[in-house]
Amino acid sequence: MLAVRIVSGTAVPLDRSDVDTDQIIPSDWLKKVERTGFEKGLFSEWRDDRDFVLNDERYTGANILVAGPNFGTGSSREHAVWAIQQYGFEAVISPRFADIFANNCTKNGLVPVVVDPEFGRALLDAVIADPGLVITIDVERGTVEVPALGMETTFPMEESTRTRFLEGLDDIALTLRHDEAIAGYEARRPSWLPETSRI
């Protein structure tokens, strides 16, 4: 994955709670066997509504998605992250993310930014009021800033995750440094554990 240090730009306000991954990318799109081409599927059912915020030209070119709480619930489909990224977003801000979705974000360089509910609400209102508002997310410092309004807060991130973002590291290569430990563990596993080749 590519390294990510700073995400700065305008945002789209998605003022809804419990946005599940079936809404982010409906299941018809999961039939693709490629990893690209999901941008058209992003929120595709909601986009048929002309009033849906992604159809609002004032938000064209935004690279940050600001959403209500419980974003990315439901299915484990990583396609949801691919769709958000391929549409042009580099970070998502929400008071709470579903675990698997947040995990999938970190494997692809999409920054999941958890803010407290009051900050999240204020940020949504600010972006609704001013589509040109610039937000800056600093992964290294763990901060979200809106300089024009003097808003600033911090967001949590595991240090190991932060390192992966900043250095764009490949998880599999990192794990393979432990190849000996893996082989050692395998040698100690109980012999009765099931093998799929034997059933």
């Binding site: 990583e78 992250v81 698997i100 995990n103 999938n104 494997k107 692809n108 599999i172 794990t175 893996i182």
Partner: peptide, 11 residues
């Protein structure tokens, strides 16, 4: 997710 599927397949 799919990245983790690849990780488990490999390691």
């Amino acid at each position: 997710g799919t990245s983790e599927v690849e990780h488990v397949l490999a390691t």
